[in-house]
């Protein structure tokens, strides 16, 4: 009952924020024109079907892909954050903590730095896929590496895994720094632009490229929810109850890194969503992953859409990097949770 209310509220909230996101922006476009353009695109029209020229272009070519990218990236970060925390049995775990983000960023930076050198003949769309796959591969490889480093007698030890994650993070960070140092001015610009995190580069092309990378984890991860619940008591509990713990682990890591890698590739590193959203979800309706995973996806989409709106509107005509907004929104709430649940988190 309570959960139905949460689902409904979040869905409605997401729809409303998508509408606002489409209607608001530096361009003042009358709401009537917004509705007109959108309904027209859907094949019917409420008001006149007059040509709105550039306004129509702004809605269809700028705002709509950007909003969709926000929804997709938010969904990806929310759900994979929840899944990773489940595997690590620690509500403080985050994709960036395990080295997933660092691995994705390193691979993406390498691809950007050597793109013209090696793959000059690639088309735009193929370039996006390359970047997304590269980031996915980088994320996956680091996650597996951290995981294997931390294996003791066939069992993954969580604290070792987190420490290994820190080491890998430092390594990947240093290599990323080295590559950025060696890159020329021109490349450096696109790398820094990308490191700050932004949805400003959203086009139909990269949104459609991102879509499958988010869809597969969103559909797949909830099937692993029970296994993740059992992981909360102990890794071998899944086995004792008749599930295959290794399969669960590998599937969760693959699906989560797929989502994180692809979103890092199109929008850069947007922090705190993967950490914060699952926390909020648990506060709302408990820790059962059958609830946490889908709701984290929904809430991630909602929060990132809102954060992007803030980043676009707050310091017009310029826009803030979205990572700044999510960190500003996220850290106080995170600290609050930390202080409140200090004792619980420590054991």
């Amino acid at each position: 009952m309570k959960r139905t209310v949460i689902y409904t509220c979040l869905s409605v909230g997401l729809l409303v924020s998508i509408c606002f996101s489409l209607a608001l922006g530096a361009m003042r476009i009358p709401i009537k024109e917004v509705i007109d353009t959108l309904t027209h695109a859907m094949g019917f029209s409420v008001f006149s079907s007059a040509d709105h020229g550039i306004n129509e272009g702004v809605i269809m070519m700028i705002r709509l892909p950007r909003t969709l990218m926000g929804v997709l990236v938010g969904t990806a970060l929310g759900i994979s954050g929840a899944a990773i925390q489940g595997i690590f049995r620690n509500p403080l775990a985050e994709p960036s903590l395990v080295g997933i983000s660092a691995g994705a960023s390193l691979m993406a930076v390498l691809i950007i730095a050597f793109e013209t050198l090696l793959f000059s003949s690639l088309s735009q769309l193929l370039g996006y896929y390359l970047l997304a796959f590269g980031a996915f591969a980088g994320a996956g490889i680091t996650a597996m590496l951290v995981y294997n480093l931390s294996k003791i007698n066939g069992q993954a030890n969580v604290s070792t895994m987190l420490l290994a994650g820190i080491a890998i993070n430092a390594m990947a960070g240093a290599l990323t720094g080295l590559v950025t140092y060696l890159a020329d001015e021109q490349k450096l610009r696109s790398i820094t632009f990308w490191m700050m995190g932004s949805l400003g580069g959203a086009t139909w092309q990269n949104v459609s490229c991102l879509f499958p990378f988010v869809l597969i984890p969103v559909v797949g991860l909830p099937f692993l929810a029970k296994g993740l619940n059992l992981f909360a008591i102990g890794e071998n509990q899944a086995e004792l109850i008749g599930l295959n713990p290794n399969r669960i682990k590998i599937l969760v890591v693959v699906l989560a890194t797929m989502a994180v890698g692809a979103s890092v590739a199109v929008s850069g590193i947007i922090g705190f969503i993967g950490l914060l959203i699952p926390h909020l979800t648990r506060l709302l309706g408990g820790v059962d992953h059958r609830f946490v995973l889908p709701v984290s996806a929904l809430m991630g989409a909602l929060v990132l859409t809102l954060a992007d709106m803030i980043s676009r509107l707050i310091v017009q005509p310029i826009e803030l990097p979205i990572g700044v907004v999510t960190a500003l929104m996220g850290t106080p709430i995170f600290l609050y949770i930390l202080i409140k649940d200090k004792k619980k988190l420590v054991n």
Partner: peptide, 16 residues
């Protein structure tokens, strides 16, 4: 480490 409720933990025995 996660705040599962008593009912949820007992129910996990039935997952299989």
């Amino acid at each position: 480490t996660m705040a599962f409720s008593v009912k949820e933990i007992v129910m996990m025995g039935r997952y299989g």
